[in-house]
Write a protein that binds this DNA or RNA. Structure first.
Lengths: 363, 363
DNA sequence: CTGAAAGCGCTTACAG
DNA sequence: CTGAAAGCGCTTACAG
């Protein structure tokens, strides 16, 4: 139509629209629309003619127009701190898969765990482009959430910050951390350390896992020694490696350590290896998340395995419900977890070892 | 407007549109549009009034409408086999970041490496929703690409399949594989194996890395023994673990192995550990990709490090150029790589070891 | 510097 | 079962 483009324009091959298909098939646009959208009341002959025309013209519906008309886009956003943190990468894969089953497309936001960016995401940087948001915040506060004005349906992954208006899908962090720590205590370890404490008020996960750790110490009759609780700036391998080094430098190093995620544990394992400390002989190590790396680590890593598949599936499900217009009170859904005991607390398997592939995805 | 919704409708709080803002600010919609889009010719006083109205009404532009009008969406798709394969996860993070610099949003497609799904992606499942596509295919053939009818701008990551119409951003695979293999040969290893060969014709990367491996053997004056070339079904840890086991079961096991990616190498390391084979003492191991896991593996992994940052950046750049209407001939861009020598070929570092954190992202 | 009006490509009541 | 027409919420020539 508008022939105002620069001279680079490929060809005069004008974009094919519904009307063109209708003209070629000799029907109204309504009928073409019906065929495209799979409505029932179209005679087979008409349908065939329309489909032939669609093929011949290579017509594709313009989704922006459809979205504008229908008031929805079929796109949801997944906002995570970093896409290449294995836990979030696995989650992303599962969310994309679960969304696809509902014909939803996933758009990705990376917040870097930065509060300002998380506020933007909560406030709807993509307002009207996305129909819903699955959000795993790191630094967002309850106040931020309460101040939210955007009304895009949202489901939060992770701890429930305050009692805001959003659905949450979570793991029972306190219980899971207690189980992991208790497992270490039952190995006969007396000085069980923790790696992963965090100061800032928004660090809900860290707080809950720390609480579970402390409950377990009490239950096992072990003294709580704050010197054995190592704070970290972030939850990457490097933080775990450094924290482990600090713990080893103490006069009374631990004989077990519960790391608040697997990445921290993998970093800790590396430090232990470099220092020549035997795992689990000298120090037993447990993590949290059950990322695939842990199944191939040296030694393989004992960890809390949340049901990530269900986490993703439930999140998409709750979101779809809200998107469909249901407006129940904010819900909090718990997904199951289990403790997976591997070599880092149970010793190396006798050779020949079980094929670690059996623990991985078969794909 | 249409008050036809079911009784669940939250409130009569009608969606705020441009017109409402214009009315409140006492200007025309054109002026509001100018303010929203940051055009220059608006008096400061007017701008302030409009901005106040936007805040008061909590107005957000409807992106679908804007897209429809402008003929573009500002959204690009990234299609990869699996989001939780570390290499693709790292790439995804970098692509999302690079896209953001250009105000582009990234939507993710997972193909599972399945040809049918890859054909769909190439044919534009999201036609008109996305302005462009960055695509890392696994099973797609040159014929598939030649048959492509969708004209969404596309940039391919990985090997150039045939000489189709698409831009490619690639690593010099043959050279890189040759360097890695030569490194092993220069350690004095005589029986250098390869893990990662693949049969199917679309496996361009496998073919090129195998070629580089063979070139290096010839250059080093080593005999080519096809029994030392291990094929794999996929490029996951489990495949590497199994392939390594097969190589070890031979009468004449290798004293070095070049794995076509890091995941295969990590699986191989696990098998070697279980079998009590010393790395690099008995067998030196090298990989390809430089994923973060390799920096914390036991031992740390020697690998070819492609400049992933540049890979992502260039891909987005080429795509943006095509999206802007430039239609040069298909381009093939090579990004640099380097061989990173670590413990798996160079032995363990003397204690105290360098902090592995220094090798990781600092974040 | 601002206003009034057309139109992007669909879907959807409303008629027939 | 199908047609003609309105309208989703923007942006953009076109006037002034």
């Amino acid at each position: 139509m508008a022939d105002t483009g620069p001279d680079l324009e490929p060809e005069d091959r004008r974009r094919v629209v519904l009307k063109d298909v209708a003209a070629l098939a000799g029907v109204s646009v309504k009928t073409v629309s019906n065929v495209v959208n799979g409505y029932v009341h179209v005679t087979p002959a008409t349908r065939a003619r329309v489909e032939a025309a669609i093929r011949e013209l290579n017509y594709r519906p313009n989704l922006s127009a459809r979205n504008l008309r229908q008031g929805r886009s079929g796109v949801i956003a997944l906002a995570v701190p970093e896409l290449d943190i294995p836990y979030f990468a696995e989650l992303a894969r599962l969310v994309v898969a679960a969304a696809e089953e509902r014909s939803l497309t996933v758009l990705v936001d990376q917040t870097g765990g930065d509060r300002a960016r998380e506020q933007l995401v909560a406030e709807g940087i993509r307002a009207h482009l996305i129909d819903g948001l699955i959000f795993s915040p790191l630094a967002l506060t309850g106040e931020d959430l309460a101040a939210r004005t955007d009304d895009t349906p949202m489901v939060l992954l992770g701890e429930r910050i305050h009692h805001g208006p959003a659905d949450h899908v979570v793991v029972r962090n306190v219980e899971a951390a207690r189980e992991a720590t208790l497992h270490l205590a039952r190995l006969g370890r007396r000085r069980v350390a923790a790696i992963g404490a965090q100061d800032h008020p928004a660090a809900g996960t860290a707080r809950l896992r720390l609480a579970g750790y402390r409950e377990a110490l009490a239950a096992a009759g072990l003294p709580a020694d704050d010197g054995l609780v190592a704070p970290v700036a972030a939850y990457h391998r490097a933080d775990g490696a450094r924290a482990m080094a600090r713990l080893l430098d103490r006069a009374d190093p631990p004989d077990a350590v519960f790391c608040f995620n697997d990445l921290l544990a993998l970093g800790a394992l590396r430090t232990l290896l470099e220092r020549g400390v035997d795992v689990p002989g000298d120090i037993a190590v447990a993590g949290f998340d059950d990322i695939e790396d842990g199944r191939y680590a040296t030694p393989t890593l004992t960890t809390v395995a949340p049901d990530k598949e269900q986490l993703a599936r439930r999140a998409v499900e709750l979101l779809a419900e809200r998107m469909a217009g249901a407006a129940p009170a904010a819900r909090e859904i718990h997904v199951p977890h289990r403790l997976v005991v591997r070599e880092s607390t149970a010793g190396r398997p006798a050779r020949p070892a079980p094929d670690p592939a059996a623990a991985g995805r078969t794909s």
